[in-house]
Design a protein around this nucleic acid. Structure first.
Length: 374
RNA sequence: GGGGCCGUAGUUAAGUUGGUUAUAACGCCGGCCUGUCACGUCGGAGGACGAGGGUUCAAGUCCCUUCGGCCCCG
């Protein structure tokens, strides 16, 4: 479509023969990203406990950074002076920036949502700011984001239909303003489908966003505390409403099981703090069991964390050593754990793309979910 | 020889004029974590209060004896 940015494309889309899962490739000014893709979260311009070079070696192709956080600290001026976030943080691959609507909702001490934008008070120093669709976009352009997200309002769960509908009107209006205001056309701009748990609102949101026209579409307002099955239902009903030739991004999701499920609905992109945060909290993902590394049963366990994993952590260290580092509070524990969890997610995505490419995703999904006990 | 201080959970400590199931921190054990203020958070187990005797309705708290550790003066 003519509305889409010149420097951004979603290509080589290929559907699985047996279900709605698909593979594709995002082409950006900073390189390509194979989909379905998982983006680790680097809120403040850093993947916690990981060097950019390590992330790249793990197979990470795109990361997520956060407009709200970077706008407040160090400020978009500092990032602009540094030549953009890629140069500032030493990451040369694609970056997607969340608009900050989510943080305004979850973090700001004081916030007032008006048709103009969100008036909020910084969680850092209490200073007051007005974030509008236009300023959120301007900050993301200064940051140099490859995929920018429209400012939206993420409704909580539960939320009445009345409130959800009122909120959705604002989000849709903001999306239209964002679309009008965008300048840099070598970057992508994604709209975000809200509408809470109400199918008719989700449908309306999707239709209106599609008529505005975006480079990609996100499903937002999930993983905010609703039951897992409800999240699947919302995603399963919303994804088919989005254009097949545009990437579909499910925001804030999720566990390996969630990802495997939602790719079956035709989702192409995910971001989630789980692999990085859980790593720092000592919860490690493996094929099969989840390992809470602090448990005493690993005290003398000389086995690698995950025998099937090819990461540096699994190839070089025992569970006993990882437990020791974690219990002792060594910073290296956070690094080694994060390396593993991120690699685990990346490998999962690689397996998924292969399964889709071979038209056997439905079987892959069934087997995966059985093995997880889900 | 004389005087003084201290012994309470695995560890370090708090325990008010004696008064309900003796606290805390760390440690130990376990749960949680979904568009990250996060090496975070919630919970659990664990104690003959050095020992013996006494006063009292009631003693970790007061008295006596004793054991152990430490300090000061000769």
């Amino acid at each position: 479509m003519s509305q889409s940015g010149q420097g951004f494309r979603f290509e080589r889309i290929r559907k699985d023969g047996g279900c709605d899962a698909r593979t594709g490739r995002l082409v950006t000014a900073h390189g390509t990203v194979d989909t379905p893709a998982f983006m680790p979260v680097g809120t403040q311009g850093a993947l916690k406990a990981l060097l950019p070079s390590q992330a790249e070696a793990l197979g990470v192709e795109m990361i997520l950074a956060n407009t709200y956080h970077l706008y407040l600290r160090p400020g978009s001026g500092t990032i602009g002076t540094a030549g953009g976030l890629h140069r500032f943080m030493g990451w040369s691959r694609p970056i997607l920036t969340d608009s900050g609507g989510f943080q305004v909702h979850s973090l700001a001490k004081l916030r007032r949502i008006t048709p103009e934008g969100v008036l909020f008070q910084s969680h850092i120093d209490g200073s007051r700011h007005l974030l509008t669709p236009e300023t959120a976009l301007a900050v993301q352009e200064t940051i140099g984001s490859d995929i920018m997200m429209c400012l939206d309002e993420c409704t909580p769960y539960p939320c009445s239909r009345e409130d959800t509908e009122a909120s959705l009107k604002l989000t849709t209006d903001w999306a239209a303003r964002s679309r009008r205001h965008r300048r840099a056309d070598d970057r992508a701009l994604f709209g975000i489908v809200q509408g809470g748990v109400y199918p008719e609102l989700r449908r309306r949101a999707a239709e209106e966003l599609v008529s505005i026209g975006f480079d990609g579409y996100a499903v937002g307002g999930v993983s905010v505390g609703e039951p897992r099955e409800l999240m699947y239902e919302i995603t399963g009903r919303t994804a088919p409403l989005l254009p097949e030739d545009r990437p579909r991004y499910l925001m804030g999701v999720g566990t390996p099981e969630d990802i495997v499920r939602c790719i079956g609905y035709g989702i192409d992109m995910f971001d989630c703090v789980l692999p990085t945060r859980c790593a720092r909290h000592g919860l490690l993902f493996t094929n099969g069991e989840k390992v809470v590394i602090k448990h005493a049963r690993y005290r003398d366990d000389q086995e690698p964390l995950d025998r099937d994993c090819d990461c540096h952590t699994c190839r070089n260290f025992s569970r006993a050593y990882l437990r020791h580092l974690f219990v002792a509070g060594e910073i290296l524990a956070l690094v080694l754990n994060t390396i593993h969890n991120v690699r685990h997610y990346i490998r999962l995505m690689e397996r998924i793309r292969r399964a889709v490419a071979e038209d056997r995703y439905a079987d892959f999904q069934k087997e995966f979910l059985n093995r997880q006990g889900g």
